[in-house]
């Protein structure tokens, strides 16, 4: 890493600002999961690499956690004629703002499992 290059990325106005004290922590989930089983086991994947004969987990995966996304079936279905999802009474699902807010299907974490643009 070229430190000079990194420094040029800082807005001069911001570079002089004092850094705040920020509490660092080991996430609670990590403490719990580490006490139970390795990350690659509960994720159902094996992203380990060999280093000096022993397996090492990629650093970033140490901070993975269950998404908590529900697999519940949404209360609407796709209408092939209208080409959008409709409620049981035939109204477009997008007409029910409260429903969309509740299901979280339009949020920045929705769909992140298959699409990494959130």
């Amino acid at each position: 890493m070229d430190r000079n290059q990194a420094d040029t990325q800082v807005n001069p106005k911001c570079a002089s600002q004092k850094r705040r004290d920020v509490m660092t922590f080991t996430p609670m989930w990590q403490k719990v999961m580490n006490s139970l089983r390795p990350c690659h086991v509960w994720l159902g994947i094996d992203h380990r690499a060999t280093a000096g004969g022993s397996f090492v987990r990629p650093f970033t995966l140490n901070y993975a956690q269950p998404s908590g996304q529900s697999a519940a079936v949404p209360p609407y279905h796709f209408d092939v004629s209208l080409q959008l999802n409709v409620l049981p009474d035939g109204r477009p699902a997008v007409s029910d703002r409260a429903l969309l807010m509740a299901t979280g299907t339009t949020t920045s974490t929705a769909g992140s499992q298959t699409h990494f643009d959130d």
């Binding site: 509490m23 660092t24 993975a64 269950p66």
Partner: peptide, 17 residues
Amino acid sequence: GPPPGEPPAALPTTLVG
């Protein structure tokens, strides 16, 4: 983004010490 697989995982931006 998060690794694919089941159950779904999340990778929140996290402080490191």
